[in-house]
Design a protein around this nucleic acid. Structure first.
Lengths: 344, 344
DNA sequence: ATGAAAGCGCTAACAT
DNA sequence: ATGTTAGCGCTTTCAT
C-alpha cells in the first residue's frame, strides 16, 4: 500500500541565514516588497520602507547576492584579466579600474594569466559564468576559442594597453611608436651603438613591439640593433646585471635602451654604486614613467605611459556602455610622452 | 468563462546560453550526469564522460557558476579586504594570497577599504552574500557590527598584518616590537636626537604602533620622541619634503625614523641629489624591506617584514581549514628582521 | 553508475 | 504601491 500522506518536503538551506521571507514576515509585508526596498527604495512608500529596514536590522539579514544574480541573470561583477601582478604597470591599471568601478558600485573579479593564453581562456570562461557585466583584458592577442567566445558574448569587452582593431572596445597606446620614439631621441643625442635589453620578450609581446619600433628605425639608418634578453621577470637586480653584462660583452656600447623602468633603474643605481658615469660612460633609458625614475640622479629618460588613466578610461567606457550612454569612439589612444632626464 | 488551456509558461532566461539540460539532451543523458562530469568526473563511466565532454564542446556550454553556487550554498570565492591598493605592502600580500589560492582553484574577491571601517563592514556584508568560503581582512580593529557578524559566521576568518587575539585566525607581526627594535638600533649607533616621520598615522594604526614602540623605548631612556606626520599617502616626493622639513625645523636632528621605506627612500634619493651625506649629516631608516632599499647608496637600514609570506601563510591556513586539516596554531607570528645598511 | 524530483533565495512578469 | 506566481540553472536527496 502506498503512502497516503504527502511526501515530506525536502529541505536543504545551506546555512540557516535569514532570507527575504524571514524579513518579510517580521515586517508584515511580502518578500517582493523587501526586495524592492533593497533594489529600488524609491518605489516603496516611506513608512513601509522604514518598517522593512527595521526588520532587516532586527533579523540580521545578509543579502544573498548569488540568488539575486541567478534570478536577474546578472551580477555587478566586472571581470578584469591581467598577465601579471608583479608588474607595477598592471597594478596601477587595476587601481584606475578599481577606483572608478567601485565608485559606481561594481565589484572587480580579478584574474592573472601569468602570460598564458590558455589560462586567459579558462579565466574568461569562469568569469562569464559569474554573469559578469563586462570584461576587461590585456592585449589584443588571445586563444582563438577565447576570441570567438567573447565575440559571441553580448556584453562590453575592453582590450587594454595595446592599440589596434580588437573585439569590441580598445584603450591603449602604440608600443611600436613608443619604442621608435625613444630611439629617435637616442639618435638625436648622437648615440649609435645602442643595445636593447629586455626580459620575458616572448610572452610580453608589447615589449617586443617596442623593440621592433626601435629596430626598424635603426635599420633605416643602417645601424645594427642588437637585442639582449632574459627569461626572468624584470627586477632591479636584473637591471644591474644587464648593465654589467652589456658593458662586458660589448664594451663599445654607448647607450642601453631598456624595455622598462625597473631594469633601467636597477642599471642606474648600480652605476651609482660602482662609480660608472651615466650618461658619459653609458646612456640609459627606459619605458613606463615610474615616479622613481624622476628621483634618481641622473633622472631617467623614459616614455611616460598613462597607466592609471588606461584603467580609468577603460572603466568609464564600460560604465557608459552598461548605462546605455553613447561612446565617442570604440578606440581610445591614450598616447605617451617622452620624458628626457639626464640619463641620456 | 475562464481560459481552458493551461496558462502559457512564463519564460525569462537572461541570455540564451546553453544550459546543462541542453548539453544533456545533446549527449543523450540526464542533466545530473553532466553535472557529475563537471564536478566529480570519477563518478561517471569513462564512455559516458567522453560523450558528455564532446557534447559540452559542441553546444559551447559555459558553466553557470551563479546557479551552482545557489544550489550548493557555496562558491569558490575567498574574500580579501585590504585598506589600500596604492601601498606596495598590500600588493605583495595580495600576491601571496592570490598565488596560493589560485593553485587550489579559489577565486579572490578583492575589496579596498581606504582605511574606512564603515567601508570594511559594507564589503564584508557583500562578500558574505556571495557565499564566500573564507574571509581575509587586514588588522584586528573593525566596526562592532563587523566583528559580531564575522563571529557568527561559521567559516574561516583570518586577520593579517598585525599580531594579537582576534576573531578566528591571525597571521602577522608585532609592529610595536618592530618600531622598538629599530629604535634600539639607532640608540646602539649613538643617535639621540631622533625624529619619527610618518603619513596617515590616524588611519594606519600599525604605523602608529611602531611609533609607540619607538616612543616608549626613547622615554625609558629619558629622550624625547618628536613625531612629524602628514595626512597624504606615502610617496617618494613626500619623503624628500619630510627630510627637508625636519632639517629646517629641527636642524639638530641626528636621525630620522621613517614609518615606511617609501618615505625613507625618497629622503635618501633627495639627499643624494642635494649633496647631503647619509648618515653623516643625518641618519635615515625605514620599515618594510623593499628590494629598492638595498640598491640605494647608502643601503637603507630597515625592518624586513615578510609580506608575501603573510599572504601565503594566511592562504595556507584557510585552505587547511576548508579541507578539514588541523592547524598547528590559530596564530602565526611571521616575525621581522632588522637589515642594517649604511644609512645609519 | 545513472536518473527523477525538489528546492536553493531571489527577481521578472503579471496582477490589483 | 504592493502582492502572487513562476522560474533562473544548478545540486542535493533519494531511488534504482
Amino acid at each position: 500500500m502506498s503512502n497516503q500522506q504527502p511526501p515530506e518536503r525536502r529541505r536543504r538551506r545551506g546555512a540557516n541565514n535569514p532570507t527575504l521571507d524571514d524579513v518579510a514576515k517580521e515586517a508584515g509585508v511580502s518578500s517582493i516588497t523587501v526586495s524592492r526596498v533593497l533594489n529600488s527604495p524609491d518605489s516603496v512608500r516611506e513608512a513601509t520602507r522604514h518598517k522593512v529596514e527595521a526588520a532587516i536590522e532586527r533579523v540580521g539579514y545578509v543579502r544573498n547576492m548569488v540568488a539575486g544574480s541567478l534570478a536577474s541573470a546578472s551580477s555587478r561583477f566586472i571581470a578584469v584579466i591581467v598577465p601579471s601582478l608583479s608588474n607595477v604597470v598592471f597594478i596601477e591599471v587595476i587601481q584606475g579600474l578599481q577606483t572608478t568601478f567601485e565608485k559606481h558600485g561594481y565589484q572587480i573579479l580579478l584574474g592573472n594569466t601569468d602570460y598564458s593564453m590558455q589560462r586567459e581562456y579558462e579565466l574568461v570562461n569562469a568569469f562569464l559564468g559569474w554573469s559578469s557585466l563586462a570584461l576587461v583584458t590585456t592585449g589584443l592577442r588571445h586563444e582563438e576559442n577565447c576570441t570567438s567566445l567573447l565575440r559571441r558574448w553580448q556584453k562590453p569587452v575592453v582590450e587594454i594597453m595595446e592599440l589596434g582593431k580588437g573585439i569590441d572596445l580598445n584603450v591603449g597606446l602604440s608600443h611600436y611608436d613608443a619604442g621608435r620614439c625613444m630611439t629617435q631621441h637616442l639618435l638625436d643625442r648622437g648615440y649609435r651603438r645602442i643595445v636593447y635589453a629586455g626580459t620575458q620578450m616572448e610572452g610580453n609581446y608589447r615589449a617586443r613591439l617596442r623593440y621592433e619600433g626601435h629596430r626598424d628605425l635603426l635599420e633605416r639608418h643602417g645601424i645594427e640593433a642588437p637585442l639582449v634578453e632574459w627569461p626572468e621577470a624584470s627586477e632591479l637586480e636584473r637591471g644591474a646585471h644587464a648593465l654589467q653584462h652589456v658593458l662586458t660583452t660589448r664594451p663599445q656600447t654607448e647607450a642601453i635602451h631598456f624595455a622598462d623602468d625597473i631594469l633601467a633603474t636597477g642599471a642606474i643605481l648600480h652605476a651609482n654604486r660602482v662609480g660608472l658615469k651615466v650618461p658619459d660612460d653609458v646612456a640609459i633609458c627606459g619605458f613606463t614613467g615610474l615616479p622613481l625614475g624622476q628621483h634618481l640622479t641622473p633622472r631617467l629618460t623614459t616614455i611616460m605611459s598613462p597607466r592609471e588613466a588606461i584603467g580609468r578610461i577603460a572603466a568609464e567606457q564600460v560604465i557608459a556602455r552598461i548605462e546605455g550612454r553613447p561612446l565617442d569612439a570604440d578606440q581610445v589612444d591614450v598616447g605617451f610622452e617622452l620624458a628626457v632626464g639626464e640619463s641620456t
